[in-house]
Amino acid sequence: MKILIVEDDLVLCDVFSTFLRDAGHDVLEAHDINSAIDRLRGRGFDLVILDYYLPDGVSLPVAEYSCVVCPDARIILLTGSGVFPNGEAAILAPCIDWTLRKPVPLEDLRALVEYAALNQHRAAK
């Protein structure tokens, strides 16, 4: 599976990418909105893991761009603070598929990624 990780904390980004690469996925990294959009352009990602707060702003535009460029890509939003505490995510950010709150245990992440992969295979078939 082709995964884009957008996370400004380099260590955490490294942890996630190492973990997912070990799990056999093709992983690309981005650390801010601009580089994320650069990466998204022209490449068909299957999954985008997106941190909410990035150095150059909130990452929702990236999610929207992703929806346009790679409509097949599922999006996991990671938040440190409790954004959308009352479940308004579906209304305010309709292109987000799942929201995970940091800290994200690696097994949880793996479970979700595998779930996404399963759905994608099903869709591909």
């Binding site: 904390d9 260590v11 955490l12 942890v15 996630f16 190492t18 973990f19 070990d22 941190d51 707060y53 938040t79 440190g80 603070s81 409790g82 709150r101 940091k102 800290p103 994200v104 245990p105 690696l106 097994e107």
Partner: peptide
Amino acid sequence: LTTMSHEIRTPLNAIMGMFQLIEA
């Protein structure tokens, strides 16, 4: 407080992830 929470959670997540990676 919100910012603090966010600031703490990200590096913690990195630490926990690291430990898990090492463990694995």
